[in-house]
Nucleic acid binder design. Sequence first.
RNA 1: GGAGAGGUGGCAGAGCGGUUGAAUGCGCCGGAUUCGAAAUCCGGUAUACACCUCGGUGUAUCGGGGGUUCGAAUCCCCCCCUCUCCGCCA
Length: 479
Amino acid sequence: MCLYTPRMIDPKRLREDPDHYKRGVARKRMSVDIDRAVALDAERRGVQQEQESLKAEQNKLAKQTGPKIGQLMGRLKKAEGDERAAIEAEIEQVKAGPAALKEQIQALEAKAQELSPELEALLLEIPQPPDNDVPDGDGSEHNVEISRWGPEGWDWAQTFEQNRGFAPKTHLELCESLGLVDFPRGVKVAGTRSYVLTGAGMRLHQAVLRYAFDRMVDQNGFSPMSVPVIVRESAMQGTGFFPHGRDQAYLIEESKRGGGHDAYLTGTGEVGLMGIHQDEILDEADLPLKYVTVSTCFRREAGAAGRDTAGLYRIHQFDKVEQVVICRADEAESRRYHQEMIGFVVDLLKDLGLPHRLLQCCSGDLGPKNADMIDVECWMPGRGDDSPDGRPVGDFGETHSASRLYDFQCRRLNMRYREGGAGGKGATTICHSLNNTVAASPRILIPILEMYQNADGSVTVPPAVRSYMGGIDAIKPAE
RNA sequence: GGAGAGGUGGCAGAGCGGUUGAAUGCGCCGGAUUCGAAAUCCGGUAUACACCUCGGUGUAUCGGGGGUUCGAAUCCCCCCCUCUCCGCCA
């Protein structure tokens, strides 16, 4: 019997090493009652075993009573009077044994059903424990810088003004002066945190996305995909965004009408990409699967009220090129692809000439599904606390996030592979998965605009994306 | 939005109350034949969980969950999913 309809963490491991999960919960600064889960699981398992032995007995009995009843029924047809009553009594007697068993089994069944909802809800909430080499910490403030990179001539010890010889404008100011984004009209159409990309702004947005997408396909060997952004609950749960992130997703109420199912707008292309092979048994020879998509992402940003309200940083809708890798269940392999996927981003940012740094996220910043996460932050000269003169001093802003999930997602998605290839007799094993941003726009436009701005107020188009901008080399203010 | 059909193993497709975990075909694996291959023939070929003397044993699974029955893939109820036709429409 399948004990666990919704799949979650490894039940065997939970039983054998509950401390592993307790540590994980503590390190992630979450609160999930592991002891309760283990107790419920044990109780449920006991009921299960009792039930199974009773059922074995029942099955054995049924094999005997079947023919016996058939025989008695045959005699009953011919019998009359007292003999008839005797046979009927005998039939009842034969039936009594299995009937008694059935009652016991049903009582156990009722008990199991009582335990299940709480147990399953709990199991779904247990997060993936962080890897041992992930530093402990409460949140993003405890993330650890691994490395940073700046283009030729960029000195991290100097301010933008010292580096470049003029005071930078913020991306907001540039968007307005260059006519790249119309915020008031975006808000008019769609509410807070909305925007309209206009003219060269829209063109740059598309150029960056297309550039990033083509790179992944042409240089890095990823399969290009277009995936649904309106998905079922099962896809959200399977990818690990539910239950914890439920309040971040847009539910489409209308989808419930006419007997329709719940549908949600995805906050990342990862959901659609990972959903592709849900409930499938893949051929080991086909792994790793490397997919890239570009999709519109929808985020409610619940709980972020008042944070990053201005500009293109924190918005409800954006477009993102996303990469995922589905590989064999092997830690070394998982780590290798993680590095590789981060490398693709670093190379892309170098090609774009954007100063950035890599951060090892601490345990408290990981989120439920990650065993490990590396963030990439780009330098944004127009960000950061206002200095005494009221101008920002510059700061890093997160632009990418590379997650390593082991089998957490694939277990929930029921995505496995057969060792030794399809048709073979090899064991089925749950895949491992990873994902990473390639480019999310318009957020990535912030460092591009702010870093490529010139003293005269124009913005140089990064050479890497020029061919996607009709060949123009700069965005200039309208005369 | 209206009306109808249907969900069985990797796939196709039987079975519609009693050794049916499930015919048959395809695919796949092993073997025979062959110089080798094709063709042909023979054998094998689901998953999950639990126990285990690692050889096996038990339980469950024919979309999911209940029910009827001594016994359910087969009968009844609820839910989920898919498809077809009409309407509307990028």
